[in-house]
Nucleic acid binder design. Structure first.
Lengths: 167, 167
DNA sequence: CTGGAAATGTTACTTTATAACAATGCATTT
DNA sequence: AAATGCATTGTTATAAAGTAACATTTCCAG
């Protein structure tokens, strides 16, 4: 209620190039810290680093891009390190894997709900997380009709975001 | 109308172990032939072979499993061969890629509609294609609310199929 | 039966991800 | 502080998934 930028039921936000992105990052890191504290999980240097890099944009990031960005001429970070950090962040609901892209995005949903859908712009690459209640319901209902018990739903919609449509 | 086994709007079929699977295969190959004839596309030996192997079960099949099955001690088939056959079959709507599994299933939908959703059983691995009209609508509507223009939708639901639930 | 396009073969490589074990860090008990 | 033990990260190697580029073959139209 307090924060008009928080995603709420049925809406999704695209950000475009110019927005106060530091706030997005700040919010995400804040939430991560809070959540880990509550759960007694350790948000280590590496995990925080990876989370920051993922939140560097609203696009989905490839694991090996993270790897490159984490490595400098001195010291190269290896795949397992990144995948382990990603694993941790996913388990705690701080990032999502976008299966249709083999890539990762920061979770911008609110704490507990997790029937997220992803809107993926084919032009600019931005990914927006949406909590589409209607979609969730339709999925649940139609699966039930088929006698199927849904445990995890993946909905990834590729198309054109409002910003890119405007051009 | 004539064929009660054909999937129709809003329903999905799971097959379990005992069913007249030769019919599924026959139907799929028949459709493939028909469709290629209509379009002047060539259903070559390799493409037909791959399609048959995919229809060997109702599970999603990995490209490299196809590769193994296509190779014998004499002659090994290489990745591009399989991926090219898969590409062809996908372009013509004869198989689908299941992104969340990096695997492929035969298309059991009717000819032209293509808003398919996949129900994937985590126990037995069977994949069932569903044409959930409600889901499609909900997706379209909620994306539209967000100003997003959907070009391709990917809906993959992991859970428990009726057969496995019964056990 | 031949010229050209489509299909397949072949080699090499890229991208994505994980297994297995070693070393280090860090928190708690003694 | 030393000892214990588990969580985290480092390291090496390899698996799994997919593609680029060019050579060869197939096959159909003329």
């Amino acid at each position: 209620m307090a924060n008009r930028k928080t995603l709420s039921g049925g809406s999704a936000a695209f950000h475009g190039t110019r927005h106060a992105h530091a706030r997005c990052v700040g919010r995400a890191l804040g939430r991560a810290e809070e959540l880990c504290r509550q759960r007694g999980a350790r948000l280590t240097y590496m995990r925080r680093r990876v989370l920051e890099l993922i939140w560097d944009s609203h696009k989905a990031v490839k694991a090996y891009d993270l790897l490159d960005r984490l490595s400098d001429s001195e010291k190269s970070v290896r795949p397992p390190t990144v995948y382990r950090a990603l694993e941790f962040l996913m388990v705690h609901g701080l990032v999502h894997r976008v299966d249709s892209l083999n890539a990762f995005v920061g979770c911008s949903g609110s704490d507990e709900q997790h029937n997220a859908q992803f809107l993926i712009c084919q032009e600019c690459g931005e990914v927006s997380e949406m909590d589409g209640a209607m979609i969730g319901q339709a999925v649940a209902r139609q699966a039930a009709e088929a006698g199927f018990n849904v445990r995890r739903q993946m909905v990834e919609l590729h198309g054109e975001c409002p910003g890119c449509a405007a051009k």
